[in-house]
Design a protein around this nucleic acid. Sequence first.
DNA 1: CAATGCTTGTTATACTGTTACATATGAGAC
DNA 2: GTCTCATATGTAACAGTATAACAAGCATTG
Lengths: 168, 168
Amino acid sequence: MHRNPGPRGTCAHEETHGHRLNGDAVESRARSYAVSKGVPFTPMRQSVLALLAASGKPMSAYEIAEKVSDARKLKAVQVYRALEFLQEAGCVHRLASRSAYFACDHLHGEGETVVFMVCAQCGAVQEAASELVARGLRGAAKTTGFRPRHPMIEVEGECAECAGTPER
Amino acid sequence: MHRNPGPRGTCAHEETHGHRLNGDAVESRARSYAVSKGVPFTPMRQSVLALLAASGKPMSAYEIAEKVSDARKLKAVQVYRALEFLQEAGCVHRLASRSAYFACDHLHGEGETVVFMVCAQCGAVQEAASELVARGLRGAAKTTGFRPRHPMIEVEGECAECAGTPER
DNA sequence: CAATGCTTGTTATACTGTTACATATGAGAC
DNA sequence: GTCTCATATGTAACAGTATAACAAGCATTG
């Protein structure tokens, strides 16, 4: 499961996981963050996170608003507020390439460079932390003095499942 | 007629250039593309490209519509149409993280992995083609069978100029 | 000329995200 | 208890981004 090519020097840790995630784990991380900030983990936040975690795929804020169907129809702004909290908590990320949000149970380290691989067909997201990519970015940046800030990168492509099912 | 930058293999070729670009070069590439497609390189397309090339920074479609100031006020939809052509021609890229478009005179090879470094402060974009990043992505993808399609990645950070001028 | 194919002009609309303000709720201070 | 304060929620309006649909223009070609 874990490939570790281990190119010399600093430990290159390559970890990958798919879109099946542990809802309880991600929620407990959100709760911890709420406690650390002294703010409540409200039902609103819980609902949005639970929906994203259960879906396992990126959703737009308006999709979320529609599908958080505990009777009440949420307004987009409410969803955005919940998402803001969840992003701060590190439980949810935004995919700029799709203007969509998805839950993630991977606790990202401080300087870690995370790669989000987005399937163009089914929308599933896989994450991987790649030290090799991180080094490549640092190398590219060094020549111009650029300082990478949020090393979160998105790559479009085709997941294994969709590649195996060409014309659906 | 696409030139394909040769040095490949295991050798990591790192090429970088800033946001000063050659307006004539990028326009002639657009013209070549137009010829190859048998469509005209119209004044509309020329204006949008010229503005982007002269600015050297990413601009939103609506900004472009305002600033293409040859008397006529462009509608957004017209700008989007021009941008569509220019993106196909490879002269303009879209920055998903900012919903902005910028001109680029770098002819990207087929399987090349390009890194766009976006300064969070001034908005300037620097490009670099990194073979090391490409290898990292392939490695990360291989573990899950993911096939990267459009290896164009965006990294936010701080450019050397802005880093040297902390509070402007 | 007529037909075709592409570009442009115009209107409308959908999607994404934020501002502003009123109200509610919960925890501590008195 | 109740006052106060900070935060969360509800609501409306709006700003910004992007596309759809269709009419009209302008080439080139048969």
